[in-house]
Design a protein around this nucleic acid. Structure first.
Lengths: 236, 236
DNA sequence: TGATCTTTTGTACGATAGTACAAATCACAT
DNA sequence: ATGTGATTTGTACTATCGTACAAAAGATCA
């Protein structure tokens, strides 16, 4: 999109650059940024360490390019699905459609690259946990608009819930989404094999079902604690 | 608990060992394991790098000791609160009490060390995202029993929900909990200052309210998709 | 074929990592 | 006061890190 591909763009190996990107994405997403060395990436991609420097200059540049690759398409897909969801008449159905528009691209789409969006979403989860600065910047300036659009849409379908509560609950949604991608094996283990945490379709259905209910929870009346209060003692 | 403190246990600085542990906990929790060097930790604790080696032998040993410090007390507190919650008669109230028993210690308690359990819970979140092996082992063997106890308790108060769904939803709970501690500033930002993501009490109330509703969501009938299906097109 | 540009390779450099270890320093019982 | 064991300091070693760069190899077109 930025460079015009000259006719001799093709390299010796068919797209070594892409192989490096894919390997880096995989390694970063599973081990974190700092645990993976440029040499690890090069080795996994069948490339020479110097080749990474040639294509991306620095390790940060490599991470940045991964984000550039995915953020656009994923945001676009989310916007499309959100626009369609907003046109749903029934408020209950609309809420579910909105949540689905948020969740589905994170699991399955996001770019045409192999592996789908799940790997990239997991990468985002890990980078956010590590407090990576490069990631933080590009995420805030790329996804905050979309996040606000989703929050607004949800708020419209739940007018009686304060916006603050919606923000919190959408935050929980993202956390649940991230964690499902980070440690899927925990689900399999705790369910004693009855559930498969790595099954994207199953995870999506569970997440959508649970999240819709969470959004529909009664508003948190911060002023008046109307209902019964904590039943168990709380020391300090 | 393992060493009997001889009368000359006190060092030159009052508890340099504890200072190192606290500094490491803080740095690991905010930057990840690999991004923090032993020298960073020593500097933050006002200690000499060699002192870290003396007390904990290796960097892994330091992390392990942090876990040992917190896992026991936190598990104990959770068990106490869970036992109390199970005695609540009303099923709705009981469910909320159980969720609270899970959430509250993660935010506020967990050990007598300064800073409370929030720092340690955040540390666990980051280590889990990084796929840290030392952490994974000790977590699985320390918390799985407790997790099962909570899942069972929740299942008892929601008998009509399949266990699989409960597992998924408690997984989402943990993910939401982790993420709230990892990036609280995102809540403040998205709510445009109306909510404070760093306010533990507020986060707890929001999380409990949302999670209880999520647990109470209708069961996911994997066999019969009774309700209307996705309203928006799904390509691929 | 030979010139030219792109890509890959191989190697090296300075910085920093984790850890080991001897020497210095401390607290305390005698 | 002095000896003794626990702790802290200072330093050094080896490995690996990110990155730079010159040379080799490959591709493209005159």
């Amino acid at each position: 999109m930025i460079r015009k591909p000259t006719s001799r763009e093709t390299a010796r190996k068919p797209n070594m650059r892409e192989a490096i990107l894919a390997a880096a994405e995989e390694l970063f997403a599973t081990n974190g940024f700092n645990a993976v060395s440029v040499r690890d990436i090069a080795h996994a991609a069948g490339a020479n360490p110097g080749s990474v420097t040639y294509h991306f200059r620095t390790k940060d540049g490599l991470l940045l390019e991964i984000y550039r690759r995915h953020c656009g398409p994923m945001n676009l897909r989310r916007s499309e699905l959100l626009a369609a969801a907003r046109r749903v008449r029934d408020l209950q159905d609309r809420l579910e459609a909105i949540v689905r528009a948020y969740v589905v691209p994170a699991f399955t789409s996001g770019s045409d690259l192999a592996g789908g969006g799940a790997r990239f979403t997991r990468l985002r989860a890990v980078m956010s946990a590590e407090g990576n600065e490069v990631a933080r910047k590009i995420i805030a300036q790329t996804f905050d608009d979309t996040s606000h659009a989703f929050i607004d849409a949800i708020h419209e379908s739940l007018p009686h819930i304060p916006r603050t509560d919606i923000v919190w609950r959408s935050h929980f949604l993202l956390g649940a989404l991230y964690y499902s991608l980070v440690t899927p094996e925990r689900v399999s283990r705790l369910s004693r094999g009855e559930a498969d945490g790595s099954d994207a379709a199953g995870a999506i259905e569970q997440l959508v079902q649970a999240t819709v209910a969470a959004f529909q929870a009664p508003a948190l009346d911060q002023a008046a604690p109307a209902r019964r209060r904590p039943v168990v003692s709380s020391k300090s």
